[in-house]
Design a protein around this nucleic acid. Structure first.
Lengths: 132, 132
DNA sequence: GTTCATGCAAATCGTTTGCACAATG
DNA sequence: CATTGTGCAAACGATTTGCATGAAC
């Protein structure tokens, strides 16, 4: 895919670079519609996806669009296969020391944390011959 | 809120306890509609929310429903305030040793990981008097 | 018999897409 | 002029909700 310049896209990137608040698409839309009175959400989303594809920004995508549910209510981490989407509970110790580190570095009160590992599960490695 | 028994809710919990695949609402619906021919998605979702509220299951909710975007494309962790929803980039080292630990314990190929810390940010601590 | 749960359909919300027109190269 | 971007509105998919009926206590 070959991209052409677009003022809207440039301004979206600029706004994103000048803020630390990790905005939503709607925040960007609100900020820009003074500048581009006919701006539409479609344009904002399309450009965000292009910028993400170009590696200029990162979408904090929180996984798939649908919720997953877990009857294992003890703290644990997850592994998510990037091919088949399967989620596996991990049997590694939950490290609350990490929360201490964050509290030492910031003024925040940390209540909990979560870790997700992403990669390729054993089944998909066999199927696709990917991974080593 | 006071809850009454419901066969549908009991079966949803049972299914969830007997599988490790972290199902979606739709997966549960498909599994149960043989048993409850008139089952509706509304019922599944309502019961999942009740079970979550009761602490009997955990919704892997991936934060809010909307995407957030970040122009900081170097690997880093996030802190999310549970009161105001603000997201802050954290200045603590990204520990790729964690990925090694997972690979040692599993047959998975790990490509990346993410950590989110949840708690109360300094602004909200002042406002609400919460936290310590 | 009061409260909570169900099924159904319509509504909601964030995001995506089809299309005709405008801007870019 | 060939290609990509825009605005608009309609479509989408997961989830929620209003309402009348049914089950639990």
């Amino acid at each position: 895919m070959k991209y052409k310049r677009s003022l809207q896209r440039e301004r979206i990137l600029e706004l994103l670079k000048n803020t630390g608040i990790h905005p939503t698409a709607n925040w960007l839309y609100e900020r820009l519609k003074g500048e581009f009175p006919n701006l539409s959400m479609g344009t904002v989303y399309r450009n965000l996806n292009i910028l993400d594809e170009q590696g200029l920004i990162k979408k904090i995508d929180f996984g798939s669009t649908f919720d997953r549910f877990d009857a294992n209510i003890t703290p644990h981490y997850h592994f998510i296969c990037e091919i088949c989407g399967s989620i596996t509970d991990l049997d590694i110790p939950v490290d609350s020391g990490l929360e201490k580190i964050v509290e030492a570095k910031t003024k925040f009160k940390v209540n909990r944390h979560r870790i997700e590992f992403y990669g390729i599960c054993d089944k998909c490695r066999k199927k696709t011959g990917m991974g080593k």
